[in-house]
Design a protein around this nucleic acid. Structure first.
Length: 309
DNA sequence: TCCTCCCTGTTC
DNA sequence: GAACAGGGAGGA
């Protein structure tokens, strides 16, 4: 279940193997994993695109193409080094002023079980769960595998990004949003605090794991109406969410069962979970047994003593 | 605003 | 052999 820290880790580990490579051929063993108005053929229509880098926006992993020779730069270079578009002040939307039909790259949503991995020459045969293969000019191939077929990939251009509601409605990055904007976003909507944390229009990149972990750290009951929370408690939630996301990124993410980074390595943050997956076990803070309930349509683990509405 | 569906491997 | 996991689309 790649959430923000896992996608960030995949982006960072994937970049060395693909940056500077050209995509010679796109193989699509499972067409249902491809979505959007642009086809794989559109990606190659202007000649083999060259991969400039790997980024992230929310839970989307972005394979960024270099501009074609002779055309306007489709995307500006990130203002800060590193693969994350999230750390890019003006964001990829700055490219909307560029050629509207230029292929900017590919956007992957890994959902539950999606994996990205570069395989060396000779190992480029699709497996049972391979959904997409990008054949690169060094003989290697980038594999998109996804056992549960929930993951999706699409080609993006300025025009299709502008017409993609999910992209247009994505909320701010949790690691970048300021305290005042965070508080405003949560106070302006109805619903439980957990439902809002999971809503990608409020914040981009938080899933079930980091919602539960940040709520525990902030001492907030997941079913608490967000509107009833004062600015102080929301400010604390933001601090706890930033902490847990940064700790997880430092640990290369959480591996429940499926998640691996682009090198095939597991993360380590699952060892630091305080509530997720620990229903019935003792609260690390007070010793009470952790409760489990379905909140916002997701299984939710929390401490009924430490977390209050 | 909440429910169902999509998927399949794992667990009960 | 059923329940469960879960992000987002789409419908009630």
């Amino acid at each position: 279940m790649p959430e923000l820290p896992e996608v960030e880790t995949i982006a960072r580990t994937l970049e060395p193997g693909v940056a500077g490579r050209a995509v010679l051929r796109v193989e699509l063993p499972n067409p249902r994993s491809w979505e959007g108005p642009l086809s794989p053929a559109d990606v190659l229509a202007g000649g083999p695109p060259r991969i400039a880098g790997v980024g992230r926006r929310g839970k989307l992993l972005l394979l960024r193409f270099a501009p074609l020779a002779g055309s306007e730069p489709a995307l500006p270079e990130p203002a800060t080094p590193g693969p994350a578009w999230a750390e890019w002040p003006e964001g990829p939307d700055a490219a909307l002023s560029a050629t509207p039909d230029a292929i900017l790259g590919l956007a992957f949503h890994l959902r539950m079980t999606g994996r990205l991995q570069v395989r060396p020459r000779g190992e480029a045969r699709p497996g049972a769960h391979t959904r997409l293969i990008l054949h690169l000019d060094d003989g290697c191939a980038l594999f998109f595998d996804d056992t549960r077929k929930f993951g999706r990939v699409r080609a993006i251009s300025p025009a299709t990004l502008a017409a993609w509601p999910f992209w247009q409605h994505l909320g701010p990055e949790p690691l970048l949003v300021g305290e005042a904007d965070f508080i405003r976003a949560f106070q302006s909507r109805a619903g439980s605090i957990k439902a809002l944390l999971l809503d990608q229009r409020v914040l981009a990149g938080v899933g079930n794991i980091y919602a539960d972990e940040s709520l525990f750290r902030a001492g907030l009951h997941p079913a608490a109406p967000a509107r009833g929370l004062g600015p102080g408690r929301l400010a604390l939630l933001r601090r706890c969410l930033v902490d847990v996301l940064e700790e997880s990124i430092a640990a290369c993410g959480s591996s429940i069962r499926d998640y691996r980074d682009a090198n095939g390595d597991a993360g380590a943050f699952q060892n630091d979970f305080r509530v997720y997956g620990r229903a019935g076990q003792a609260c690390r803070n007070c010793g009470a047994p952790l409760a489990k309930a379905k909140i916002a349509g997701r299984s939710t683990v929390f401490c009924p003593v430490c977390q209050q509405a």
